[in-house]
Structure formats: structure tokens, C-alpha cells
Design a protein around this nucleic acid. Structure first.
Lengths: 233, 233
DNA sequence: CTAGACTGTCCCATATCGCGATACTAACGT
DNA sequence: ACGTTAGTATCGCGATATGGGACAGTCTAG
């Protein structure tokens, strides 16, 4: 490698993959984006194509290929990975169950949990798909959903547009015995680096222990945990 | 490259990616799987790691990385790509609307459509999320769903376990005015290469034109189209 | 506690392999 | 027919990836 001057094939391959994944890319665009000479870019792209990492559309432009999808299928969800760090911390701080929900259509899916080791506690199974019409997590996800989904959810929800407006203003939501009798919860939005709300993080437990205003106690911790998640995306 | 004898870096990179994506892989396993010398495998894996295509878990084993997920996010769904070829053919043969549905939790999503250009026709919007409780497509997806989902769907469905058993026996399903008044449809399961049912392909149209036994007319064409889809995955 | 057998990491002379200027071909638009 | 753009094939040079081997931690067994 002489003096560690030039860039290696690997860097070029990654550059080509990135370029082709950003948008369907013709050879010339590929060269512009990557700064590679035409012959080089062509050779790499054709190589990637034969391996199935790229494929060509009708106009001969390169797009991500089927193998890429197959490889990423087993890829870990960065949000879940971050949750493995953050959720237990929040559980230890609050002593209550903590969940992470992601919106999926008009339902939400529990993608991570952390529960106290013993005693009376609220359990949401990992992977459970539950209603978007009730609960603090549902309010948060709906409050920042696109308008069409919002309308559809509100049609069958226990909360109103006014409640959602308040959630957006406050930055968190709470609920008492909405989703489950005897259970209260607080939730905060989790944002990606770009600021989009990608999930809701919740603390939930028996009303007797949590009290009727769980937000007063835990909204701060919750928002902090949400920021910690964002930082690790 | 002399006489095109040896394998190039690109091949090695792909081999490493495949190995690490199949399962969390330590260096030694990586060498066994790929046949590469330790130093080479190590250098490539570390390179891929710095680029974010791979990452390491707590035990130092390599797993697919965040960049891989990001690249594949824009990757085309192979099923949708195949549908772009197959669905119009089936529409032309039948003269009716054709849809492709994928199961998603307790609902189904329309991931591809092909409709006759004019006249009375059934329209399902692309991306529409519709019920799993009624319609021939719902029967097919439920018939081959996992037992837990099956039970959950049947609780709110218009069809019975006996109907599903018949669907599995026949290999296709039909329905009359279940999902939508005046609309009849036939559906067949679409399998991946491994034989798992990954989607349902449907023909639907007005009962007046389609008749009360749409399966008699189109089950054959439908099964053929399903096979064509499988072949292109 | 030590020997032994593992791991993952780093180094460096070597020849292999990728490089890219150049030339060729195809498909346009004028 | 001509120029201009696109993608593709060629080929000798030399930069670059290679992999044997050394090194350093880590675990197991005796």
C-alpha cells in the first residue's frame, strides 16, 4: 500500500453502494457522485450487480438489489439495540415496567420491554400488537402521526383531537386505566436524528402505586430516556 | 488480473457479508465459512465495520450493521418487482382487477395492483390496509398463517376453521360479497422458494360479470400466476 | 500456578490484482 | 450523414491487497 495514500476498493464499493441506494443511478451520475473514473465505477457496479447487491432497472440505472434486502433482513434494528441499553436504566430509576412502541398502520407494536424482576407489574409481551385507540403510548404515536392516520385513529379512539394537541404542547402523554384496568402510564416521543417521531417510550404500572398523575413524577425521566435513545441512533 | 484466475476483493467482501449476515460470526467461523485466511478475513471485516456495513456485538462477533439496513431501506421489494410483470398478464387474461396482498399482523396490505383500463371494476388502492376477517385473499393468508394469528383472526372473521381447511386442501379460496357488496373474488397463495406462503394474489370484480363460482373459471390461471411469481423471487 | 491451546490483532515483503487512459460501439438528436 | 452523448471492452503498468507468521491476551485443564 506504499504510503497509505490511495483509497481501497472497499471504500469505492461502499461509495458505489451508497450512491446507487440513494436513488436509481446511471453510470455518469455514479461517476459524478463518487468521483470515480468511468471505467472503475462501471466495473464495480457490474460486479456488484452480478452478486445481486445491485440490479438494473429498465433504463439501465442501478438500484439496490435483492441480496442487499436479504442481508439486511437479519440486521438488528438500531432502535431495539439502543433500547437494550436505555430501557433497563429507566426501569431501575422508576421501579416500573418500561415499553417501547412503534406505530404500524393503525396499530402499535411493542418492540422492546424492561420489567421489574418481581412483584405486581404490568406486562406487555415483546412483539405484541395492541390498539392505537387507547393508552398514553397510543396518544403519543397518534399525536405525531400523519394527518390521514390521525383521522382514522381518532374515529375509534377514547381520546380527542384536543388531547392530542395538549400532548404535542407538553411533549408527553399520560393515561389512567385506558388500555388496561388498574394500569396507569406515561409516554414520551422518541425521535430520530432528523427529528421525526419514530417510537414512543412508556412507563406503566398499577395505579395504586403510580398515582393518578404519573406524568408529574416521571415525565422528566422519560424525556431524558427518549433523548438518550435518539443519541444512540 | 492475469488470466481471470483468482477471486477478487469484491467476491471476498460479499462472502464476508453473507457469512456475517447469516449469523453472528466470530473470526474463526468467518474463515471456515468463507475459506479466507485469517488475516484477510479480519482485515475485510474490520474494514466493513468501519464503514458501518457490519458491527460487533458484545462477544466481538460480527453482525449486519446499520448502514446495511439504511441501504436496503430503499431496496425494491422483490415480490413487488415480480408483480409488475405478472399482475398485468393476469389482468389481461381475466379482464378483471388483480391485487397482491401481504399479511401484516392481523391485517393485510395491498402491495401491488393491476386494473382494467375502464369500465366497472373493483379498485383496491395500492398500500391500502384492509381487514383479515373477510374476502378470499384474507382466507388464503389466514389459512397459511401461524396458529396464534389464525385463532386471533378467526375470532372476528366471517369464515370458519372448516373453510380454511378446505382452502388448504383446494389450494385457493373464493368469496362472494364478503369484503365489499357486489364484488366476488378468487385468491391463491404465493410461495417463496422455500415454500412459505408470503402473499396472496387475487382476481376481483362485479358478481354480475364474474359469476357465483369464480374459482371454476380462474383458479387455474391464478395458480399459474402464483407460480410465475415464485419463479421470479 | 503453569502449560497448552485457543483466540483476535498487527506487520511487511511480495506478486497479484485492480486501475484507468484509451478505444470501440450503440443510440440518440439535429 | 454528422456530432454528441451514453455504455462497454481492452490491456500493460504498478499500486494494492495479500496471507504467512509473530504477538498478545484469554480460557481450560492438569
Amino acid at each position: 500500500m506504499g504510503q497509505s495514500s490511495g483509497i481501497g476498493v472497499l471504500d469505492k464499493v461502499v461509495a458505489v453502494l451508497k450512491a446507487a441506494s440513494a436513488a436509481p443511478t446511471a453510470l455518469t451520475d455514479l461517476c459524478d457522485t463518487t468521483g470515480l473514473p468511468r471505467a472503475t465505477a462501471h466495473r464495480l457496479a457490474v460486479g456488484l450487480e452480478t452478486h445481486g447487491l445491485l440490479q438494473r432497472d429498465g433504463q439501465g440505472r442501478w438500484r439496490p438489489g435483492p441480496l442487499l434486502a436479504a442481508l439486511a433482513a437479519h440486521a438488528p434494528d438500531p432502535l431495539v439495540a439502543a433500547a437494550a441499553d436505555v430501557l433497563p436504566q429507566l426501569r431501575d430509576r422508576t421501579g416500573e415496567s418500561v415499553q417501547l412502541y412503534r406505530a404500524d398502520g393503525m396499530t402499535r407494536v411493542c418492540i422492546a420491554v424492561a420489567e421489574p424482576p418481581a412483584g405486581l407489574r404490568d406486562t406487555v409481551p415483546l412483539g405484541a400488537r395492541i390498539s392505537m385507540g387507547a393508552g398514553s403510548g397510543a396518544k403519543v404515536l397518534t399525536a405525531w402521526a400523519d394527518p390521514a392516520t390521525q383521522r382514522a385513529v381518532l374515529a375509534g379512539a377514547v381520546f380527542t383531537p384536543q388531547v392530542l394537541a395538549q400532548v404535542r404542547r407538553r411533549g408527553w402523554a399520560q393515561s389512567l386505566a385506558e388500555r388496561e384496568p388498574g394500569v396507569a402510564s406515561v409516554s414520551a416521543p422518541v425521535r430520530d436524528r432528523a427529528g421525526n417521531v419514530v417510537a414512543a417510550i412508556s412507563v406503566s404500572g398499577p395505579t395504586d402505586r403510580i398515582g393518578r398523575r404519573p406524568g408529574d413524577r416521571w415525565a422528566g425521566d422519560l424525556l431524558q430516556a427518549a433523548e438518550a435513545l435518539t443519541a444512540r441512533l
